[in-house]
Amino acid sequence: MKINHHEESGIVIIAPKGKIMGGPESTALHDLLHDLIEQKKTSVIIDLAKVDWMNSTGLGLLISGLTTLRKAGGELKLANVTDKIQSLLTITKLVTVFKSFDSIDEAVKSF
């Protein structure tokens, strides 16, 4: 799993790649979110276009990211969710919790 991120009009867009399966690389995402909160950057979009799959640990990562950012007064939104992950979010009914968008532009506008 690789984590690239950039900023667009004050909103941080994180674009992980591959599988989000937990393990040492997912601590990188966790650390990144904490760094962002310290820098008072709490509006975050996770672009899931390049994420093939995530397991329950990966899901836990998104959940803790969301709760951490919300506690800091921010928000974590998802963009470009693939079908497979969409079904995962549907089954777990996390669709009711996460705000998910079809494109980054839409996600950025929603802030």
Binding site: S64, K93, T96, V97
Partner: peptide, 12 residues
């Protein structure tokens, strides 16, 4: 029918 996962979000 139900709701989201347990233990992550309060008051859902």
């Amino acid at each position: 029918a139900g709701g989201t996962v347990i233990g992550a979000f309060e008051q859902v």
